[in-house]
Design a binder for these strands. Structure first.
Lengths: 355, 355
DNA sequence: TCCGGCTCTGAAAACCTTTACGCTGACGCT
DNA sequence: AGCGTCAGCGTAAAGGTTTTCAGAGCCGGA
C-alpha cells in the first residue's frame, strides 16, 4: 500500500518472491501455509506480499488445484422471503469455510436453470444447490438426472432442497422439511380449535412440497374421523396474487368452511387481504393459517399462525451435509423438522357457522 | 452424453480437437466463435464437443483473458426485502449480459466486508457493488478509499449504492435514491392530511441515507411554516425490533403527536405492532408512513402508505451505469427518483388530539 | 570419518485455454 | 508462368499458481 504500483497488471507471486529473495515455490508455500517454511523466511515473504499489496490469482490457483471452493445456490427468485433465507443460510455456512457463494435466479424457467448449471460447471463449482419445489414431470426428471451425472463426473456435488430426486440411484442428495408432518400438525391445531370445514388453498399438483402438505392435511382430517369429502383443496398455486384471487373466488362460492390452510405464507397474505376486502374478520369469522413463517408473518393482519420451517437452517444443512459425507451422501435423504407457531389468526369457529 | 466418459478428469479442448481432427487452436476458435472458421470444420468441432459433453474451463479462460465477467454485490443481509430486491436487480442485469453474479452478506461487519472485497479481488471480479447506508466515520472513509484504489488498480469498478463516496476524487461511482426528495414528499402528504405533530422514527446519525430523509422531513416542515421545534427525531436505528421498541417508548412518553414517519418499512412494521399492542388504531388514532415500499407493505395492518424506491431498478442501474461509461464514470453521482404510494395508514388527525 | 536422514529450497512440470505468428496451398491477376 | 493475397490451420507462447522431484546443506549417530 505504501508504494502503490502504478503499473497496470496485477502483482504476481514472482514479484513477491523476487522482493523476498526466494523462489516462487517458497513464496507460494509461505503464503498458502500449505507446506512448512522457516519462520524467518515466511516473515520475509509475508512482508513483501503486504508491501506490494499482493493478491493471489484465484484462477491460476483453481486451474492447478482442479476446482475451487465455490458453492452455487439456485432459486426461483431472491426476493421471495423463504428463498432468501435459504440462500442466506448457504452463504453463511459457505463463508464460514472460506467458500464463495454465488446465487442464480431462474424465475422458474427451466432453460435458465440449465444455463446456470452449465455455467457452474464451467466455473468449477464444487457444490450446486437447487432449491424450491417443482412439478415433477419427465422433463424435470431428465434434466436433474443430467445435472447429477454431469456434476458428479467432474467431482461436484448436487443437493436438492425441497425437490425430489428423480431416482434414488442418482448421485444427488436431498434435504428438505417434513412437509407432511408439518401440515398434519397445523391441521390438527385447527381441528382442535373446533374447525371442521377447512379448505386448503394453494395446491399445485405435481409439486412435491405442496403435495406432501396436502397429504398431511388429508391425513389429519382422517385421523379425526372426518370423511374424505371433508377435504377441499383449491389448486391455485403459490404467491400472494394467487392467494388473493383464489380466496376471493372461494368467498363467492357456495362452499361452507370456517378455516383456511394456506399453502404458504404468501398465499395466506393474499387470502387475508381478500377476506378483509369483503369485510369479514380474522379470526372472528374465518381462521387462517400459513406455512413457512416468513419474517413478516407476525406483522400480518392479524399476526399469522403458521408452521415454522427454519429456512436458513435448511440452507446451512444442505452445505454441511453435502460436505460432511463426500462419498457416502449420494442418494441420501434428509428430513428436517418443523413446528407450529401460534399467533392470532386462529380462533373458534363462529357459532352460527360451525358445521 | 451418449458416451459418458467414466474417467475422472474433465474433458479438455485437446480431446475435442483430437476427435474433430483439428488442432486445439481451431477447436478454440470454433467453440468461442471468436474468430471465423469454415462452417464444415466448425460443425465437426461442435459435434465433437457435444459428444464428449465438453465444458470449457472458465479459469483457464479467465487466466489468459485477464479477468472475467463477474459482478459482486455485497449487502448487510440477503433476507432484508430491500436488499434482496437490489440484489435481484443486479443479478438480472448481470445475467442479461452473461455475467456471473456473486453475493456476499456482511451482517454489518466491516471486517467481513473487507474480507469479501479482498476475495473479489482474488477472484478477478470486474464490478463490485456495495449497497446499503452506513455511518460515515473515518474508518469507513479509509476503508472505501482503499477498496476504490485497489479495485481500480486491477481494472475493476466500484459502485456505492446508497452510501457516500468518501471523496469526490475517488474512483468510485455513486448510485442512490433521492432520499431527501422522497422524505419531503411523504412528509408533505402527512401535512396536507392535517397532521402537525409528526415524529420521525428511525434516525441513525451518520447514516447518510437516514440523514437525508431526516433533512427532507425537516425541510417539509419548514416549508409549511412550522417552527424547527415541530420536528422530533427518534434515533432508534433500523429494523423491526428497533421500531417496536422505540414506538412503545414513544407512546409512554409525554410527546404529543398524531403521525409517525418511520425510517423504513421494517421500522413501520414494528411501530404498527406496538401501536396495536396498546389498543390504538391506525389511522384512526395515529397515522403511520414508511419508506421503501417492500413487497409485503400492502399486507401490513393496515396497508402501509410509503415511499416507493424501486430497489430492483437501483440494482440494475448500478451495473448498467458502471458498464456504460467505463472511463468517465469515476466520481459520478446518480440520483434515482421515488414516488409515494398511498394506502390506508394515513388519515385525518383525531379531532381531540389535533394540535 | 562416513553415511543416513532430515530440512530447506529451487527448477520445472502441470493445469487449460487463447492468441500471435507463421506456414501452406489455392486462387486470381498480370 | 509468376507473383501477391488470403483463407485456413497448426505451433508455441503466455497467463499465475501449486506441487513434485531432486539437490544441497547440515546434524547426529555409528
Amino acid at each position: 500500500m505504501e508504494n502503490d504500483m502504478g503499473s497496470k497488471g496485477r502483482v504476481t507471486i514472482r514479484e513477491v518472491a523476487e522482493r523476498a529473495g526466494v523462489s516462487t515455490a517458497t513464496a507460494s508455500r509461505a503464503l498458502s501455509g500449505n507446506h512448512p517454511v522457516p519462520p524467518a523466511t515466511r516473515a520475509r515473504v509475508l512482508r513483501a506480499a503486504r508491501d506490494l499489496d499482493y493478491v493471489a490469482n484465484a484462477h491460476a490457483r483453481a486451474l492447478v488445484g482442479g476446482g475451487r471452493k465455490m458453492a452455487a445456490v439456485v432459486v426461483r427468485q431472491v426476493t421471495s422471503p423463504f428463498y432468501a433465507q435459504v440462500a442466506e443460510g448457504v452463504e453463511a455456512e459457505a463463508a464460514d469455510r472460506g467458500w464463495l457463494c454465488v446465487v442464480g435466479a431462474t424465475g422458474g424457467d427451466a432453460q435458465r436453470e440449465m444455463e446456470f448449471v452449465q455455467l457452474m460447471r464451467e466455473e468449477g463449482a464444487r457444490l450446486v444447490i437447487l432449491v424450491g419445489g417443482v412439478v415433477e414431470d419427465d422433463a424435470y426428471r431428465e434434466r436433474v438426472a443430467h445435472y447429477a451425472h454431469a456434476l458428479d463426473s467432474s467431482g461436484a456435488r448436487l443437493v436438492l432442497c425441497g425437490r425430489p430426486a428423480p431416482d434414488p440411484e442418482i448421485p444427488a442428495l436431498v434435504v428438505e422439511f417434513d412437509n407432511e408432518a408439518g401440515a398434519r400438525a397445523i391441521t390438527a391445531h385447527l381441528l382442535s380449535a373446533g374447525h371442521r370445514g377447512i379448505v386448503f388453498l394453494g395446491g399445485l399438483p405435481g409439486n412435491t412440497a405442496l403435495d406432501a402438505r396436502v397429504a398431511g392435511y388429508r391425513a389429519a382430517l382422517a385421523e379425526h374421523g372426518l370423511p374424505p369429502e371433508a377435504a377441499h383443496v383449491v389448486d391455485c398455486g403459490l404467491g400472494r396474487a394467487a392467494g388473493h384471487r383464489a380466496m376471493t373466488e372461494l368467498l363467492k362460492s357456495e362452499r361452507e368452511f370456517t378455516a383456511v390452510f394456506a399453502g404458504d405464507d404468501m398465499v395466506a397474505a393474499g387470502a387475508l387481504r381478500a377476506i378483509a376486502d369483503t369485510g369479514l374478520r380474522v379470526p372472528g369469522d374465518i381462521s387462517v393459517v400459513g406455512y413457512n413463517d416468513i419474517p413478516l408473518a407476525e406483522d400480518f393482519n392479524p399476526p399469522l399462525t403458521t408452521v415454522r420451517t427454519p429456512a436458513e437452517e435448511l440452507g446451512r444443512a444442505a452445505v454441511r451435509i453435502a460436505l460432511r459425507d463426500p462419498e457416502h451422501a449420494a442418494g441420501a435423504h434428509h428430513l428436517l423438522g418443523t413446528h407450529i407457531v401460534v399467533r392470532d389468526s386462529v380462533g373458534a369457529p363462529p357459532p352460527g357457522r360451525a358445521l
